[in-house]
Amino acid sequence: MPYPAPIQEFVENLSYIDDRGDRVQALIDLSRSYKPANHEKPYPADHRVPGCESEVYSWVNLTQDGNLDLEIAVDNPQGISAMALAAIITEGIQNQPPQTAAQLDEELVYALFGKELSMGKSMGLTNLIRQVKAQAANLA
């Protein structure tokens, strides 16, 4: 199953970039589109993404018209990779029907970051996808 359309488009465009530096720059640019969550600190522990070094929290709710309202807080100014992933996930499923979140796949981490990440960081980012999917599934 393809990713939600905006994510699929980004992944495909990224796959055409051969130069590592250009790929990294595209991901940094993506991270700059990250919008912080509108929640006050301290963030609740039950929204924390397990295994993410960057202290990442996610909330998934429904809008009045029954679509997804996703917010992700990356509580670490050095969490560039987490911000990039948060931005693309949000772009992919925000204001979409809840079942759209089922199209998120953990392979997205590798499609975006490839072999550039350590195992530890990969796991944290993968867990962000898992948590958002689980939170959305609870609403569906």
């Binding site: 991901l27 940094i28 991270s31 560039i80 990779s81 550039e116």
Partner: peptide, 9 residues
């Protein structure tokens, strides 16, 4: 770094 995006950022 561990995070390969940090230095280029």
């Amino acid at each position: 770094n561990e995070d390969p995006l940090l230095y280029p950022s």
